[in-house]
Write a protein that binds this DNA or RNA. Structure first.
Lengths: 277, 277
DNA sequence: AGCTCTTATGAATCATTGA
DNA sequence: GTCAATGATTCATAAGAGC
């Protein structure tokens, strides 16, 4: 029943596979150690009873763990699991299920390697008497072993003010010499400067949330999976999103020529990811 | 033996009291429900044996809890406890003692109201094969009850580029009167000037670490306690830093006309805070 | 006064060496 | 072997000097 829902969208570069169903069941059919990166934003805990797939905060860990066991199995030993998650505020307090989940995942065998902070530059507006706007989320990194693959050069970023000033200075100095010449010489020079003026990022990511998708709110902006896919995979590797939603992760993976597998409980999401809606 | 170390530095606006000793003992002499804000950066866990006051990660929670019990007692019901802390990386993993501490503090009766992110703009340099530079720390907010006092208007920040330029100009003009640091600690004058172009901040704070203190490294830049003192106290209130180090929190409190109590295990820190070195 | 440029340095982490 | 100390790596700032 599940594999019949599978869709192959293959081209010369990479393929996307979409499955409808609970990842707990669907992933059983994937072989061990076959995935390079699991990047997902699971359904957040929700206290509303009749919500579409909401999980009670109190039961979040027990709901998550058997699925994480499948993640652990299908992930390559050198692979990485990135979990974008945020705790819900319940009765004025941050709920502790994310903390408990981290502890439980370690007991399951995961290493809690890092916690990246996704700083949302355009936080949702609002005002409350004893709370400011929440403008960050956790991106938890888990691994199977201390030695994992990481392609740091793929996510280098332009340096800050120093290179800007440097660049401004360069363009001022070379302006009169290069204006009459062909553009290529100058631009090459600038490119070289820019090439050197790249720095490794930190564990804080500054990204705006996307406001493009008005129909279905994306769980995260494309730039988020893009960053992690470039950091933890190479062309041709396999990316898995077990709670794909509208399929952002898979489509970004395809753009970057990675193969991907997306799973979602809801048929409407699978159709959306396939582009059938 | 402890109260004899007490120093009163009183003036018309506020007083600072410094005590040498373990806050576990010193705080016993403070009355119940007398403190409006506890703002502190405790000694971080440390694996080195001979370090000056280092606590093993494995024993961090059990070391912290009895002290936190005193904090709970001396804090007013409407008061706030801000804990600036970061977990150490041990054997390639983030250690879990901070997570366990949050869970243990809740069992002790604290409410885990909020987690602010202090984004350190100038993170420590370094490069490693499977880790980026760590450029953030947690500022955990705990309360005794859901109803606590919070003065949001005191930490409004200027909006947009126009006001940034305006602010720069203003700070140049009033350099000797106002702190030149952005965002926090600005006088009412600035508030009036920029009254319209102000917004409430989020729960992400962008501050550089301070590079001024060459002798003793400050645990945090003055702007950090400044922000929380303005947010959670009024003039004349009482601020406590049970691990004061060089006394940054107390001196900021005095500047803002709050009373303060600073405690530190080491005589050299107390002398430093008093200005005797 | 407004720039440009130099230099020092900050709650770091990992791999290696030595006891 | 285990534990502790040392060296290599490297960027955003502020402060200060020079033009």
């Amino acid at each position: 029943m599940i594999l019949s829902e599978q869709t192959h969208l293959k081209n010369s570069e990479s393929e996307m596979r979409f499955y409808q169903g609970d990842c707990l069941d669907v992933l059983e059919q994937l072989p061990d150690s076959s995935i390079d990166l699991i990047m997902t934003s699971p359904p957040y805990a929700d206290s509303r009873k009749n919500t579409y797939g909401g999980i009670l905060p109190e039961r979040y860990v027990e709901w998550f763990l058997p699925r994480a066991a499948q993640f652990l199995r299908v992930l390559k030993p050198t692979g990485t699991f990135i979990l974008n998650i945020k705790e819900k505020v319940v009765e004025g307090e941050r709920h502790t299920y994310v903390l408990e989940l981290i502890l439980a995942l370690r007991k399951q065998g995961w290493l809690w390697t890092e916690e990246f902070i996704w700083h949302k530059k355009n936080a949702y507006p609002g005002k409350w008497p004893n709370r400011f706007r929440d403008s960050w989320e956790r991106c938890l990194q888990f691994n199977k072993q201390r030695q994992f693959v990481m392609y740091q050069d793929a996510v280098k970023i332009p340096m800050g003010d120093w290179s800007k000033r440097r660049l401004k200075y360069l363009s001022d100095v070379d302006r009169h010499r290069d204006t009459s010449k062909a553009q290529s010489g100058f631009s090459k020079k600038v490119t070289n400067w820019l090439g050197r003026a790249q720095a490794y990022p930190t564990n804080v990511l500054h990204l705006a949330t996307e406001c493009t998708n008005k129909q279905h709110s994306a769980a995260f902006p494309a730039a988020l999976p893009e960053w992690f896919i470039q950091l933890f995979t190479q062309v041709g590797d396999w990316v898995l999103d077990p709670f794909m939603g509208s399929g952002t992760t898979c489509h970004v993976a395809k753009k970057l020529e990675r193969n991907s597998i997306g799973v979602d409980l809801h048929q409407v999401h699978v159709k959306l990811a396939r582009g059938e809606l």
